[in-house]
Amino acid sequence: MKPKPFMNPYLAGFLLGLVLLATIYITGRGLGASGAFKSVVLSTVENVAPQHAEEGLYYSEYAESHPGSPMVSWLVFEVIGVVIGAFISGLISNRVGFKFEKGPRATNTARIIGAILGGALFGFGSQLGRGCTSGSALSGMAVLSFGGIITMLAIFGGAYALAYFFRKLWLK
């Protein structure tokens, strides 16, 4: 079966805005994603190398401000929901299945390295910038946070500034 077309972007944006608004109204906080990555990393290190986790500065600071397991966090539950929601959406629109997406001229190796490296940069940057596109930029915009909005400008500005150098990854 052919995949169904994507939703009208403005309608999708409106619905996304309502999800964010509901989040703020119910919980007082915004959406997020990178925080769940951090929870996974912290809890993995705690289980694999408990000694190291006790000694590390970040681990101890985090444990002090966040008692309990890092996996029992709002964002971890939210991201589990994202996995379910995205899967349902993919299912009803016939988009589920193993696929490897890349630019028309990019080699497989380049795309594999690019995805991992890009993920690593994003992961690193999201910790430094205290949140990613969801937690800092989008949620920050909803509550007019100064930090959130300058992070957003830096993300999109940075990507535009570097787009030329990575055009071979994406353009014909």
């Binding site: 994603a33 940057g125 990613c132 969801s134 992070t151 940075g158 990507a159």
Partner: peptide, 17 residues
């Protein structure tokens, strides 16, 4: 942090969410 995330976006093609 934002500029590093921007680099991650254009190289990796995604953001975390």
């Amino acid at each position: 942090g934002g500029v590093i995330m921007g680099a991650g976006f254009i190289i990796g093609g995604f953001c975390p969410g």
